[in-house]
Amino acid sequence: MGAPAPRAVGVERLKPVPAGKLSSVNTVEVLLVLAGIPLAIIAVLALLTLRGGRKRLRYKPGQPWDHAPVWYEPHPANGASDSHGPAPAAGPAAVGGSSTAALGSSMYPEQAGERDVDTHGTAVAHLGSAGAHGGDGHGGGAHASGAGAGYPPVDAGPLGGARGTW
């Protein structure tokens, strides 16, 4: 066995070496390849994920809610400004064509004067519609009106519903 071949450095390494001979690699190069490249990839991914835009705090149950109240309402059908009532004034929940207003069950028969309440409400209700439309968002959001800025209060008969906590 003769003396080992002199170590090729820099440009020398690019020169073709005889078959069967491998150019030696020094420690710095090993570190650069085996540690530097993974670290660079991690850094790029971290930059992409951690950078983020404006932070919007995600709601977590139990944390206080210090936003102003907001009230979203559906878009009026056909873009008509005065048709906030979802269906014609004949009796919105009533099924047209059938004489009965009850759809769900006979447990809650229609109260006398219930529809009168409705027609009474229609008479006064135009006051609030301008304010409710003013809150239309730029960004395709729902109509948002400030809480309490809606419509004059109308008695809606015996109310139903449900309540839940979490």
């Binding site: 139990g62 929940a93 069950s105 809650y108 229609e110 109310l159 139903g160 519903g161 309540r163 906590t165």
Partner: peptide, 16 residues
């Protein structure tokens, strides 16, 4: 941590 659903008299007939 409260949610309330309120239905009017006419809506309650279709939404028990």
């Amino acid at each position: 941590k409260v949610v309330e659903v309120v239905t009017g008299a006419g809506a309650a007939r279709r939404l028990p």
